[in-house]
Amino acid sequence: MTGRCGVVVAHGRLGEGLLSALTRVAGAQDNLWAVSNDDLDTESLMAEIESLLAEHGAGREGILFSDLEGGSCCQACRRLLGRDSVRAVFYGVNLPLLIEFVFLQGLPFDEFSAALLTKSSGALGVHS
């Protein structure tokens, strides 16, 4: 497989909002899409993700980003893990995580995965 593609699977309009913000800071991406679980059961959500990957992600490793661990988005993603091209499911998606996804494309998967987690979790903090 050459390259990676990603789908942000999240509640409400979080996914499209994150991609909108990502475009502002990192430019438009042609390998990242958003899906909302609004009014969808798990099977329909899975079908929507699969359809997106089949249509646009052919030949690329699929990375899924969900918001809440254990939520319906995350469950749908986990059920797709190992199917078709889906290589990994990250949960707790945030903007720093997606920025690293964009800029660390070239790394082998294990390094890529570790770097995404390190950068995104390290980006959480408070000024008080």
């Binding site: 809440l68 661990e69 254990g70 939520g71």
Partner: peptide, 8 residues
């Protein structure tokens, strides 16, 4: 069941 318990 394990998938459903994730994140509880």
């Amino acid at each position: 069941q394990d998938i459903y318990r994730t994140g509880l």
